[in-house]
């Protein structure tokens, strides 16, 4: 091939691959623009703070926001200790070439790939039927179901299992960024392994662990399939009173408005506004996480 034609092919390929990248970004932009145009104008203080009315063709989405927030909070409380300690085990405690560590890694990778609807089935089969059923047999009057039915807690725990890999991966990356020399310095001063962990390693890994928490929250707030059978409700006249109540959820609300509305035209503005709120929420969380991660990665790169 001549130099000129090689150059031409090069330019062509750069253009072609560049177009692919541009296409992805463009799709993202189209979605954002559509949602913002359709929804931003409808979002008002009243919309955010009032309940749906008239068969969801009017009113606001407060119960859905509240339900999403409480469920996500419960999920975070459940997943963070387990995720962080698992990462600590993998990176700080497991002996090299540990069989168990290898197995944990395989399990975590696979957990990340299990379809979200299967988590829903798991929540139904394990938390509600098995755990809830056992609680009912032990605590409830015969024939009554208090625990073996969809509830805020079961949904949160189901999502905690789903987001476990997110937390583990982010925490392990954060631990990896803590220089070996700091651990050595601490140990050489007569600190134990757990003192080194608590006083040197974890404080330095905190931004990365926070990133994991935020990503888990963003993921957990947006997932709908796992909560379909484990706790979410179509419409509730009251806010959930305890972790054993059902709850409304932004993502599910979007699904319901989009597919099961009796009057599509009437709900459309509400639908757009709800999507806008959900998207703004998850995007804000993701942006913060990406910002922290980029900063810590750069810092880690500079430190080496």
């Amino acid at each position: 091939m001549s130099v000129a034609s090689r150059k031409a092919v090069g330019a062509g390929l750069t253009l072609l691959t560049g177009a692919a990248a541009a296409l992805v970004v463009a799709m993202l932009a189209v979605i954002l623009v559509d949602v913002v145009r359709g929804g931003a104008g409808r979002v008002s203080w009243e919309f955010l703070t009032s309940a749906p009315e008239e068969g969801m063709t009017a009113g606001g989405i407060f119960p859905a926001i509240y339900g999403t927030a409480v469920m996500t909070l419960l999920m975070t409380v459940a997943v963070m200790p387990v995720g962080v300690l698992t990462a600590v085990y993998l990176h700080e405690y497991a002996p090299p070439r540990s069989r168990m560590a290898a197995l944990v890694r395989v399990a975590v990778t696979n957990l990340a790939g299990v379809p979200s609807i299967v988590f829903g089935l798991f929540g139904l089969g394990f938390f509600i039927q098995f755990a809830g059923g056992a609680l009912d047999r032990a605590l409830s009057p015969p024939g009554e179901l208090h625990y073996g039915r969809p509830a805020l807690l079961w949904a949160a725990l189901t999502l905690a299992v789903l987001t476990l890999p997110v937390v583990i991966v982010a925490t392990e990356e954060a631990l990896r960024a803590v220089p070996r020399e700091h651990r050595d310095a601490s140990l050489a001063l007569g600190a134990t392994r757990s003192q080194t962990l608590a006083r040197v390693v974890l404080p330095q890994a905190l931004p990365g662990i926070l990133t994991g928490a935020i990503l888990a929250v963003a993921r957990g707030a947006g997932e709908v399939a796992p909560i379909l059978f484990t706790g979410v409700a179509y419409f509730l006249p009251e806010l959930p009173g305890s972790v054993w109540s059902q709850f409304m959820h932004l993502g599910y609300h979007v699904y319901v408005l989009a597919t099961q509305s009796p009057d599509v035209e009437a709900t459309r503005p509400l639908l757009y506004a709800t999507v806008f709120v959900l998207l703004a929420l998850t995007f804000a969380l993701n942006l913060v996480a990406i910002a922290i991660r980029t900063r810590t990665r750069r810092k880690a790169a500079a430190g080496h």
Partner: peptide, 16 residues
């Protein structure tokens, strides 16, 4: 930016 696309909840993509 492309990672951000992964952050869109699937129910929003379904809606779109």
């Amino acid at each position: 930016t492309i990672e951000l696309l992964a952050g869109i909840p699937s129910v929003v993509l379904g809606f779109f």
